[in-house]
Computed example of a mutant assay.
Amino acid sequence: MNVEEIREYCLTKKGVTESFPFDETTLVFKVIKMFCLLGLDDSRVSLKNDPEKNIELRAHYSAIIPGYHLNKQHWNTIELNGTVPAHLMKELIDESYGLIVKSLIRKQKEELRNL
C-alpha cells in the first residue's frame, strides 16, 4: 500500500479524523485517540498493536521496526517499500483502530456508535 491508499483506508473507519498536530508531514488519524501516524515525506506508517504480536511482526518483516518516537513495546513503524502485503497492512490498521476503540470510555464508545 502507498500513502494515499493508507489514508483512504483509514478514513473509511467510523469516527476517524485526520490532522497535522505535530508538523506538516506527519498525518495523524484519530478515533478520539491516535491510532495511526502516516509520514508523507518518508513513506512510513506507525500503528499500535499487541506487544507480543509486534515482536513477531518485527521478526518476519525487515520493514517493520519498533515505533519511531513512540512506545516501542506497543507501536510499530512500517516502511512502505512494498515488502509488507496490502492485506496485512489493512489488518494492522484494523487492529490498531480496534485497540483504540476498545480503550475508550463508555461515553466515548456510545458517541462513536451514534455516528
Rank of each mutant, 00 (worst) to 15 (best):
His74Pro: 00
Lys53Trp: 09
Tyr68Lys: 07
Asn114His: 13
Ile64Cys: 04
Tyr9Pro: 03
Leu27Pro: 00
Tyr61Trp: 03
Ala86Gln: 15
Asn76Glu: 00
Gly67Asp: 07
Lys72Ile: 01
Glu5Ser: 11
Gly15Met: 11
Thr83Ser: 15
Glu110Gln: 12
Thr17His: 00
Asn54Arg: 05
Lys33Gln: 13
Ile93Glu: 05
Leu57His: 00
Ile65Arg: 12
Pro21Leu: 06
Glu24Val: 05
Leu112Arg: 11
Leu99Trp: 06
Lys14Pro: 01
Cys36Asp: 04
Pro85Lys: 12
Leu112Pro: 11
Lys48Tyr: 05
Glu91Ile: 03
Tyr97Phe: 11
Leu112Cys: 07
Val84Glu: 11
Thr83Trp: 10
Lys53Gln: 06
Leu92Val: 13
Arg58Tyr: 01
Met89Ala: 10
Leu27His: 08
Gln73Asp: 04
Asp23Ala: 05
Ile93Pro: 09
Ser43His: 06
Arg113Gln: 15
Arg113Asn: 14
Arg44Phe: 11
Thr12Asn: 03
Asn54Gly: 11
Phe22Cys: 01
Glu95Tyr: 04
Glu95Gly: 06
Ile32Asn: 14
Glu110Pro: 05
Leu88Tyr: 13
Arg58Pro: 02
Leu47Asp: 04
Glu24Phe: 07
Glu111Trp: 09
Leu37Met: 11
Val3His: 14
Ile65Phe: 08
Leu88Glu: 12
His74Trp: 04
Leu80His: 13
His60Tyr: 05
Leu27Gln: 07
Gly98Phe: 08
Thr25Phe: 11
Leu40Pro: 05
Leu70His: 03
Pro66Trp: 07
Glu5Ala: 07
Val16Cys: 01
Leu92Arg: 09
Ile64Arg: 02
Ile78Gln: 04
Ala59Asp: 14
Ser43Asn: 15
Phe29Leu: 06
